[in-house]
């Protein structure tokens, strides 16, 4: 299998003052891959995503996304990626069509193209006759599916998803993952950040971050074998537990300093 990397990260370091948020990260993500980017809260995921999406500059290291340098061409990167987060994606007080029109316009698509793709999108969701409904009137699961469709509306090379299926019912969640599979099969890379370990099971490959470093990166099956675990969650607990102790010590140290 020829694997064509769309994200290349080499020795990425990001510091905030003396605090090292990303400590020498190196990894690659391939075209059409579903990549899970895991880590506890505060492990440095958010910082890394900001750099990959061109929102923040790395302190040192080389970051190439969709063929562009994150340091010098962040604007080019933004044109070639899509982004969806759980909290905010669509405007509640606009209709479905208005939302799509807005995003299509932001990415510079023509009116005719937007109209054509909007109809395709609504057909795929079996939602054609409801295009003029307000987002606020839709159930959560549908909102999420819609938000994802909008994030890939401009056919980006990579789409970043932030905790996409937290809290939705099991059927909707599976419909959502089918959409992700379908997207990946078209060659769009799907980059999923999450701290819900069950979402990780659906990914082709996952990386686990802890305290600013990537401590494991492989397929879920391989990781489970390696750590003799039944689930990615178990792997995560096994990897993160010694880290936790370390964390507690440093927190105690913090406390002493405060006192």
């Amino acid at each position: 299998m020829t694997r064509n990397p769309v994200i290349k990260v080499r020795n990425l370091v990001k510091k905030f003052g003396s605090f090292v948020a990303n400590d020498n990260l190196s990894f690659e993500v391939y075209e059409g891959e579903i990549f899970g980017f895991l880590g506890a809260n505060g492990a440095g995921k958010t910082t890394a995503i900001r750099i990959l999406t061109g929102l923040s500059e790395p302190t040192s290291g080389e970051v190439m996304v969709a063929g562009f340098d994150a340091r010098r061409q962040p604007e080019e990167i933004k044109k070639n990626i899509g982004y969806m987060c759980q909290k905010f994606s669509l405007y509640d007080d606009l209709t479905i069509r208005e939302n799509i029109m807005l995003y299509g316009g932001i990415y510079g698509l023509g009116k005719a193209l937007i109209r054509e793709r909007t109809n395709q999108l609504l057909d795929r969701l079996n939602f054609r006759e409801y295009g003029d409904r307000l987002i606020s009137s839709l159930p959560l699961g549908l909102k999420q599916k819609l938000a994802f469709s909008v994030a890939v509306f401009h056919e980006p090379r990579i789409v970043f998803l932030d905790e996409p299926t937290g809290g939705v019912d099991p059927i909707t969640r599976r419909q959502f993952w089918e959409m992700i599979y379908e997207t990946a099969s078209r060659g769009i890379t799907v980059f999923v950040t999450t701290h819900y370990m069950d979402e990780a099971e659906y990914c082709d490959r996952v990386s686990i971050m802890s305290e600013g470093r990537i401590v494991a990166i492989d397929t879920p099956a391989e990781l489970k074998k390696q750590y003799d675990a039944e689930s990615v969650e178990e792997v995560f607990v096994k990897i993160a537990r010694p880290g936790m102790k370390h964390g507690k010590e440093s927190e105690t140290a913090d406390n002493k300093r405060e006192a």
Partner: peptide, 10 residues
């Protein structure tokens, strides 16, 4: 256990 990491959940 919502919004809490896997270790704390266990």
């Amino acid at each position: 256990t919502t919004g809490v990491d896997a270790v704390s959940r266990t």
